[in-house]
Design a binder for these strands. Structure first.
Ligand SMILES: NC(=O)c1ccc[n+]([C@@H]2O[C@H](COP(=O)([O-])OP(=O)(O)OC[C@H]3O[C@@H](n4cnc5c(N)ncnc54)[C@H](O)[C@@H]3O)[C@@H](O)[C@H]2O)c1
Ligand SMILES: NC(=O)c1ccc[n+]([C@@H]2O[C@H](COP(=O)([O-])OP(=O)(O)OC[C@H]3O[C@@H](n4cnc5c(N)ncnc54)[C@H](O)[C@@H]3O)[C@@H](O)[C@H]2O)c1
Lengths: 225, 225
DNA sequence: GTTTTTTTGTGATAATTTTCACTAAATTGC
DNA sequence: GCAATTTAGTGAAAATTATCACAAAAAAAC
């Protein structure tokens, strides 16, 4: 009966935050739940329920003060201090992440990347690419809690194990494999780009065909879960 | 009452497919719903429900024949023929996708990428990077249905509009913005990497703190939605 | 100052999604 | 062949998630 904080709630919170940033940049001062809902693609009731879950309250008839709401969301989402992150695998995905400047602006600092291929290593770069062997030490010395896995599927579980052993508490995993981790206190979120693409393909085909072949939901605009 | 095919069902279908491929490579011939559930991270009942929704049936006590089940899933997921896809934006993400050889092996062919920056263009590559101006023609001439948006946020809506005008029916969007599209028959799936990362960060903090600060779900191992 | 309007906050309700639990079928062992 | 066992298929139940709808508060209008 008492709805609690789950993955989807927090994903929405991030979206609200992003929307608020834009509203703020546009010079708006206050916002109503239906503005936010519209911006993010949910109902206004959903917005209010989400906020109420975190004890966020606005003003009856006055909506929410953008600045203060933004600050609250930043705090909830841990944007108070810079969050250091490491990346395992300096290949296609790993490098894409390293070279994305927005992370830094948003308080996410990629402290280093790690690879086994000596050709990929660059100790002198602003974000150094080091040897995987140096990862445990680096994690411990810098108190890193979050790791991104961007190594080939075959190496992913091993890298995951090493990260967790060294103290990593949360992993964003790009390898198309379900990582197992004994420790219940470690969060592992998968990002499977192939599956996301296949999903689009499925629904395009499903919409294209007459609905005889397979049963299909009405509201297929799909978008975020 | 009659559960119908939704995004999550199809995401699971893709995961079953992947798991089956692995089972098949390992030389297994048949599989039970709880093997599949274990592999994918869902209950065996979920597996059977999902299959039943697509009219997939196995053998009581005999499980499912891996080969034939795999074929069925391939067909449902449109793996019968090569699916051509284009990418808008040959930056970090766009190039990562272009250089991922697994797509080709899995029947997803990136036919071309498009950019506005002349420095990014490479007409002679196996996957050419062309001028964005050439995109509409390319889409029409090659009957492309699926597009990936990997351009900066500011350009994403415009690129989306152009894609849809030219005939694209499904979009995987990496830009951190909600794309609007008049046409109800166009599928748009967002992939927001920053939000996925922030999500991990949130739950790591939530697990770290004593649960006083914010209400937190028990089962935080989270993983796929 | 009173009425009207607007929008929050939330309990109740509805919808969706997952799991349970049992039936029936197939296989194995004897 | 018959009993025991295993596992698919599936309605029913439970759990989860989202929406409704309305009371209460605040602001605006007059
Ligand atoms: N590139 C894409 O578009 C894409 C799409 C879907 C999924 N993925 C997945 O994302 C992951 C990364 O993909 P990618 O394209 O960047 O791969 P990649 O091959 O370009 O890069 C992988 C990197 O990991 C390094 N590596 C290998 N073993 C390692 C180990 N044990 N420790 C540290 N580093 C190691 C390699 O040297 C390489 O630099 C893969 O699991 C892939 O399946 C990528
Ligand atoms: N790189 C990451 O790790 C990362 C993380 C989160 C989100 N994203 C998002 O993914 C998208 C792509 O990111 P990126 O890092 O690859 O960016 P990028 O800047 O490296 O690449 C963008 C490319 O798009 C091109 N471009 C600009 N306007 C264009 C237009 N109108 N038409 C076609 N091409 C155009 C640019 O020339 C550039 O080559 C962005 O929206 C970004 O916010 C990226």
């Amino acid at each position: 009966m008492v709805m609690d904080v789950n993955r989807r709630t927090v994903l929405r919170l991030s979206r609200y935050r992003k929307a608020l940033q834009r509203f703020s940049e546009l010079g708006f001062v206050k916002v109503f739940s239906d503005n936010l809902g519209e911006a993010v693609g949910v109902t206004s009731a959903q917005v209010r329920k989400d906020f109420s879950l975190f004890g966020i309250s606005g003003n009856k008839r006055g909506g929410y003060q953008i600045d203060s709401l933004l600050e609250t969301l930043q705090r909830i989402l841990g944007k108070g201090r810079v969050q250091k992150v490491i990346v395992a695998g300096a290949g296609n995905i790993g490098r894409a992440l390293i070279h994305y400047p927005t992370f830094e602006k948003e308080g996410i600092q990629i402290a280093a990347a790690f690879d086994i291929d000596p050709a990929k290593m660059h100790r002198k770069e602003r974000i150094p690419v080091l040897s995987l062997d140096e990862m445990p030490r680096f994690i411990e010395e810098n108190g890193i809690e979050i790791g991104i896995i961007a190594v080939p599927e075959i190496a992913a579980q091993e890298v995951c194990d090493r990260m967790v052993r060294s103290g990593i508490r949360g992993i964003l995993n790009f390898a198309p494999i379900r990582l197992r981790c004994g420790d219940e206190n470690v969060v592992i979120n998968p990002v499977n780009l192939q599956i996301e693409l296949e999903n689009v393909i499925y629904f395009v085909h499903a919409l294209g065909k007459n609905q005889d072949t397979a049963p299909v939901n009405d509201k297929i605009k799909v978008n975020h879960l």
